Simulated assay, not measured.
Amino acid sequence: MKTIEIFKALANKNRLQIIFWLRNPEDYFVHESGVDMREVGVCVSEIQRLLGLTQSTTSHYLSMMSQADLLIVNRIGKWTYYRRNEETIAKLQDYIGQEL
């Protein structure tokens, strides 16, 4: 587990908000025709729309979170989708519960 990278990625209110939204994406994002948001993920443009930040800032945040293994990236055609990496999040919960 990339513990330091994970904590760095979560040390920003917008990135933490993304993780929160992606826990139950259907509550926050517009459902895209034919795409299961829990299985495939949420399109970058939808995350950017909700954040209200620039495309480059949103992409930077998502890239940082992906590198920390907090997000799983799915590319379908020209679109990029992100969903939570529940395995990493579960390991982080165990780490916090046992080590901190």
Rank of each mutant, 00 (worst) to 15 (best):
T88Q: 06
I47S: 07
R15P: 00
V40E: 06
Q17K: 14
F29C: 09
V44I: 15
R15E: 04
Q55R: 13
R38N: 12
D69W: 01
A9H: 04
L16Y: 07
Y28E: 04
Y61K: 00
K13A: 13
S63D: 10
L10I: 14
I47W: 06
D36E: 05
L53V: 15
E32R: 08
K8S: 06
P25M: 09
R23V: 12
Y81F: 14
R23C: 08
R15T: 13
L16C: 09
V44P: 08
F20V: 14
K13Q: 08
Y28T: 11
W21Q: 06
P25L: 11
E87L: 14
Q17T: 15
A68E: 01
R38E: 06
M65R: 07
A11P: 03
N24G: 06
K8W: 02
L71E: 04
L70S: 07
G52R: 03
M65Q: 08
N85D: 05
Y28H: 09
V73L: 11
L71H: 01
W21S: 01
S45W: 08
Y82K: 00
V44R: 05
D69K: 11
T88M: 10
L71D: 03
K13S: 13
T80N: 06
L10M: 11
M65A: 09
L53M: 12
Y61W: 06
S66N: 08
C43S: 13
G52D: 04
L51D: 02
Y28F: 15
T80F: 00
R83K: 13
L53P: 06
D69V: 10
F29I: 15
A11I: 00
S33L: 12
I89P: 01
W79D: 12
V42C: 00
G34R: 04
I18W: 02
N12Y: 08
K13W: 02
C43H: 13
Y82R: 07
L16I: 14
M37Q: 06
E26H: 08
G41T: 12
T80H: 00
I89W: 01
I89V: 15
Q55T: 15
Q55P: 02
H31A: 14
E26K: 13
R83P: 00
N12F: 12
A9F: 04
R84D: 02
V42E: 05
Q55A: 15
R84S: 01
S66I: 11
G77M: 10
V35G: 08
L71V: 12
G41A: 10
F20Q: 08
K78M: 11
N24H: 09
S56F: 12
M65L: 09
A11V: 00
S59C: 12
H31V: 14
L10K: 05
R38G: 01
H31E: 13
E87Q: 13
W79M: 14
N14F: 09
Y61C: 02
I47R: 00
A68N: 09
S63L: 14
A90S: 12
V44H: 00
I18N: 04
E86I: 15
N12P: 01
E39Y: 07
S59H: 03
